[in-house]
Design a binder for these strands. Structure first.
Lengths: 150, 150
DNA sequence: CAGTATCCTCGAGGATACTG
DNA sequence: CAGTATCCTCGAGGATACTG
């Protein structure tokens, strides 16, 4: 599992690949920065929230910022590293939207300016084109071999 | 945690938000479809792999396809639903690449045709433009409030 | 409010043995 | 090969009480 390929996915998962952590990040992306806000929103136990926030800070995904002096109070803000997780969150959310089977299909992610459902794209800045998943490679091998049966 | 907002992220996490499951999907995207290939690649215990593959099939992410008659043998292929997880995997991988601190920064995802590092984008097909994360909305609220401190 | 400290429980993960 | 069946262990998760 961790021999010659400490894959990038693995590294990401080590940092944010925990159920609560992902949910906490979602809350933070939604503008909740304080302990009690997040705790209340998620219904997570305090010791767990404390632990997860601590890890996020240790990993440089969030930072603890004092927002008040007396009494001393902190809030957690996303760093650039944390903010750059947005594609992950969006991809997760988008897939859930796309395939959810309950009636609540109104949760589709849309462009605020025009209301159209968004799309994901992977692009090559050099060629200035979209790239299909089967044309993405990592140094070692083809990352995504779509196709399969068809 | 599951009161009025069974968020799409939650739904996605329920299906694939498990450490092993994500790693199994990565293996499948790389073209490993057979039990032993995946088991060997990941070093996962057999009962767990069996359990995870079963769930993936139950959830319509993968399907069990017979590829041989005597003896009867099956392999697991991604369905459309499964294949549409590629943005999730790519986002996870991409973030890991971007922020990994070990020397192995050569794992960047590149366009196979030209070797340039890829970029992620969320696009509006109607406006034909890229959308910044703060301009994405779900029906209820702004999904990603970047900004924060600055 | 924003945590820390304890304690308890259940179940996920892993190993091993067995099977068609 | 592709699993299923058992069993054991450790630790994550949760509840509760306490604190600056």
């Amino acid at each position: 599992m961790d021999r010659d390929d400490p894959s990038s996915i693995q590294l990401t998962l080590d940092t944010v690949g925990d159920r609560w952590t992902l949910l906490i990040l979602r809350a933070m992306f939604r503008g909740m920065f304080r302990f009690s806000e997040i705790q209340c929103d998620l219904g997570i136990a305090k010791n767990l929230l404390s632990d997860r926030l601590g890890r996020l800070v240790d990993n440089g995904v969030a930072e603890k910022v004092q927002y008040q002096e007396r009494p001393v109070r902190f809030e957690y803000q996303l760093t650039d590293k944390g903010r750059s997780l947005s594609p992950v969150l969006i991809a997760l959310m988008h897939w859930g939207d796309e395939w959810r089977t309950d009636g609540l299909h109104d949760k589709v992610l849309v462009h605020d300016a025009c209301g159209s459902p968004i799309e994901h794209a992977v692009r090559c800045p050099a060629c200035n084109t979209d790239i299909d998943s089967e044309h993405i490679q990592s140094t070692a091998s083809t990352v995504v071999a779509s196709g399969g049966n068809s």
